[in-house]
Design a protein around this nucleic acid. Structure first.
Lengths: 196, 196
DNA sequence: TATATAAACAAGCGATCGTTTGGTTAAAGT
DNA sequence: ACTTTAACCAAACGATCGCTTGTTTATATA
């Protein structure tokens, strides 16, 4: 072996990084970024405040990591949901249902994405905006597959649905209607091109 | 005069309270509650940090005052917009347009209502939730005037529109489509009972 | 077993937070 | 003219913030 390349295999590296990320996601989702202190976060995972910086260079970087994981989870849930579905409207509905489920019944990661504003990350604003844009572009593709009159209608439908879904954490109560049911009712309100 | 009742006329009372409230609304709307410091607020109105407490007992009370004013302004704008309009769907569209205009082109007060979460107010959570509920009940009345199939559809339509409107500050850019245009497009996507 | 290194501790840095206290000013009431 | 008082200043309080430094512990490799 010329140079030891077995270094990034990380034998026992970052053993508690996952726990730290989980706790950060929960705390950011519940209190918001600024109201969540690194001390409370450290206490949640059972370490001292300074130990956090063994795993992340700053609080903002921690947010970026949580945010990235959140976007990834939503994307993955959506891709899984629309897989095998061919009808464009059904694909959109499945995507919305997956999106809403990730936000409401899913972990705290997804909720951070709609709770924390990118500006809170300080210098890392761009990173968060890029992540959000990447996902929304994916959603735009699903809307583009519908036969809507024009680009204005496509944009309006995307923003209408995205807003309605992302606002749901404000009024959703776990005991009542399931995310799937909510999305079905939302889609039922829309006027599709069909006149059977 | 048995007892002097001319006390609440406030001759020169709270002369700069309005300026303080304006600055607080702008700051809370832009940065969020926790990220907005009382020192920055004081600097914005040209006074020292401690002088704020001549007008408000705490930062939370300041938020409540801003929030209250915000809800009042939205309510007033909506009432003004639907006045004289009789058709239920037109009334709803006018209300949504007024709501969105208040959020986007209106002052910072309305934006605080959808930006700051009631939990940030600490002990005054209940006050903010009550204000928000009061307005949303008013919006529910407008939806109830439509002839929709059932209560589920009414609830879904209310939450769909409310979420879409309240999320708009995240993507709205002043140069582009006007709030009225946006709402018209949103309403155009909905399936109404009419089959003419 | 000896060494290297990741992970965490222990302690505290400077900065900033919301807020308090006591004094000053100037205008309004009598 | 005297008193009152709202408005504000000046200065600082204790608490908490994100973060740094130096050291210790534990584990895996050699």
């Amino acid at each position: 072996m010329p140079r030891s390349e077995h270094r990034e295999r990380a034998p026992r590296q970052d053993s508690r990084r996952a726990a730290l990320l989980d706790a950060a996601a929960a705390l950011f989702a519940e209190r918001g970024f600024h109201a969540a202190s690194t001390r409370e976060l450290a206490a949640a995972v059972g370490m001292l405040p300074g130990s956090i910086y063994c795993h992340f260079p700053s609080k903002s970087d921690l947010l970026v990591a949580v945010y990235d994981e959140g976007v990834q989870r939503i994307e993955a849930a959506v891709e899984r949901a629309i897989d095998g579905v061919s009808d464009p409207w059904e694909r959109l509905e499945a995507a919305c249902a997956a999106h809403l489920e990730a936000l409401l019944d899913g972990g705290a990661y997804a909720r951070v994405v709609v709770r924390v504003q990118p500006e809170d990350a300080g210098d890392a604003v761009g990173a968060l905006v890029a992540l959000r844009d990447r996902y929304e572009k994916r959603l735009a593709d699903l809307v583009a597959a519908l036969d809507l009159p024009d680009a204005n209608a496509r944009r309006a439908l995307r923003l209408l649905l995205l807003g309605a879904l992302n606002w749901a954490p404000h009024w959703y109560r776990p005991g009542r209607d399931a995310p799937r049911t909510i999305v079905r009712r939302f889609m039922g309100l829309l006027a599709r091109g069909e006149t059977p």
